[in-house]
Amino acid sequence: MNRNEMLRKVQEADFVLYDTALFLDTHPTCQAALEFFNQYQKVYTEAVADYEAQFGPLVAIDTDTSQGWTWVQGPWPWETEA
């Protein structure tokens, strides 16, 4: 997968978690939603780790300093994807 495809995996899992979190805010005891959220937490964690291993940090505190300050390398989100 290229950068955009891997980023899309992160965005999809992030969106699922975000939208489910909002639902859980007003339905905090919904067991089905809690299980669904837990399932996607794993998907999200894996997608972020896969992306960051190849393309650098999504959040500054994930920067691997053995590679230098990679946080400012690569495109910013407002730039058109290649």
Binding site: N4, W78, T80
Partner: peptide, 15 residues
């Protein structure tokens, strides 16, 4: 808050 280096939904406007 912590910044995440991605958009919530992709924006790629060619023109």
């Amino acid at each position: 808050w912590q910044y995440e280096k991605k958009l919530q939904f992709p924006v790629n406007i060619k023109n």
